[in-house]
Structures are given as C-alpha cells and as structure tokens.
C-alpha cells in the first residue's frame, strides 16, 4: 500500500506515492531524484543524509517520508543561488574541507543550521554541532575552519 504525500523540496512542490516505511532519504534520492543527499549508514550514525526540515537539521534516514508530509525540505541542491555557491559551500571549497566529498552535503547543511541559529559560534560550538556527522577523510580540522570562515562571510554579507 502506498501513501500520497506532499513535500516542498527546495521550494518546489512535489507529490510522491510512498510505502509507509520508506525513509525520507530514499524518497529524496530515488523518487525526487536529488542524489546530492548521501546515505552513509541508514541508521542515524553518520549524518551524511542531513537535510533541513522546516529549517531544522534531521537525519533523513531516520525520518519516514510520511512524517515529512507537508514539510519544507532543503537539500544541498537548494543552497546555491543560480551560479553562486552559498558562502558555506564557498568556504568548504576554499579551506580544503572537502576531500572525497561524501560527507560534504550533510556537513554543509548541518553548518547552515548552526549558523542560522548561532551566527558566530565558537570552535567548540562548531565541533559540537557537527559531532553527529562523520567525515573519514579530513580529520575535521579544515571543516571546522571552513565553518568559522563561513560564519564571518555570512556576517559580512548580512551587514552589507
């Protein structure tokens, strides 16, 4: 039996038919076709599947698609505007925070959620915010630097 749900993904309305047990990550990747969201474990342990649901970060492998009915979802594909990277994406690129890139979409979105709430986080606050997101390549150091650099960029942009 399938259930019809309505999602708003990166501003676009989409209607999908899903089995009730299907996690949001699979619906986004397979049904909506947005494969920028990654799946590293399917068990809430790695954060690769992080998306923003009504502005809050969630592990989309732990959210059933039916629970997301009527919600506003932002995935990595929804961050850049036209050709311009979001400042967090830009900072990740410039600071060497990306190696294999498989954790990057989740990391960037968790960073966005953090900076939306706390525009000038301390180093410890950054580390705490991303502690549920695993990166096996970078050793996190450049990711933390990138998020702090992004916080300065975002603050400057707000001021401007």
């Amino acid at each position: 039996m399938k259930v019809a749900i309505n999602l708003r993904v990166n501003g676009d309305a989409c209607k999908v038919l899903v089995p009730p047990h299907r996690p949001l990550v699979d619906v986004l990747r397979d049904d909506v076709g947005l494969t920028g969201t990654k799946k590293g474990c399917g068990a809430g342990e790695c954060g690769a599947c992080t998306v923003l649901m009504d502005g809050k970060p969630v592990n989309s492998c732990l959210v059933l698609a039916v629970q997301a009915d009527g919600k506003d979802i932002v995935t990595i594909e929804g961050l850049a505007q036209d050709d311009r990277l979001h400042p967090i994406q830009e900072a990740f690129v410039q600071h060497g925070a990306i190696q294999c890139g498989y954790c990057s979409p989740g990391m960037i979105l968790i960073a966005k959620a953090l900076l939306d709430e706390n525009p000038r986080p301390t180093e410890l606050e950054v580390k705490q915010a991303i502690a549920g997101n695993i990166c096996r390549c970078t050793g996190y150091v450049k990711i933390v630097e990138a998020i702090q650099a992004a916080s300065r960029l975002v603050a400057n942009e707000r001021r401007a």
């Binding site: 947005l34 494969t35 995935t75 994406q89 690129v93 410039q94 990306i98 294999c100 890139g101 990057s104």
Partner: peptide, 15 residues
Amino acid sequence: PIRDAREKALGTAEY
C-alpha cells in the same frame, strides 16, 4: 583546493 570541490559542495558529483 581539490579540483572537483565545487561539484562536491553542490551535491552534483555523481557517486
């Protein structure tokens, strides 16, 4: 930076 960092940051890199 690593040369394909942009695709990876955008989520368009296809694994």
